[in-house]
Nucleic acid binder design. Structure first.
Lengths: 66, 66
DNA sequence: GCCATATGTAAAGGTCGCTTTACAAAACGA
DNA sequence: TCGTTTTGTAAAGCGACCTTTACATATGGC
């Protein structure tokens, strides 16, 4: 699962800590998501989409094989 | 997190086992999702949305407080 | 009544998502 | 150069997600 979190965060000149605060998760979680270590839960994906004002499908892209 | 999985499944006259086969998950997983015991992972949410031809936001609705 | 199908649930087990604490390294401004 | 901010990473712990096996109940057709 690919995502555009880092790109959307940098557009706003936010640090990972800033984004984490807006999402109410830890900074390590934001870092892990940006680096692709794991996918967010569905509720967190909704929070991210709402924060950036985009549909989930425009932020996250599933791998070819799913 | 609310979802319309049961409604969309019944529109197609599918059993939970039928849907599970299409999604390549266990029947118990489909049952748990329909009964709201837990939310799907983000990749599984994408599979469900693609199968039903709808955006994720039209199948899953986050709780008020998220 | 019988048999097959569909649904609900439980228990045990593995991996994932997220936390807190902590440390290291990179980047930046004054 | 020094102090601050930012990013990356690790480890331990906990609950969520999903599996397999198994059993119970309900429904419907014959």
């Amino acid at each position: 699962m690919n995502n555009r979190i880092q790109e959307l965060r940098q557009l706003r000149n936010w640090s990972q800590a800033d984004l984490a605060a807006h999402l109410q998760v830890s900074r390590q979680t934001v870092n892990a998501l940006e680096r692709g270590r794991y996918d967010p839960s569905l509720p967190l994906a909704f929070s991210i989409a709402r924060l950036f004002g985009l549909p989930i499908e425009q932020i996250f892209q599933p791998d070819q094989d799913r």
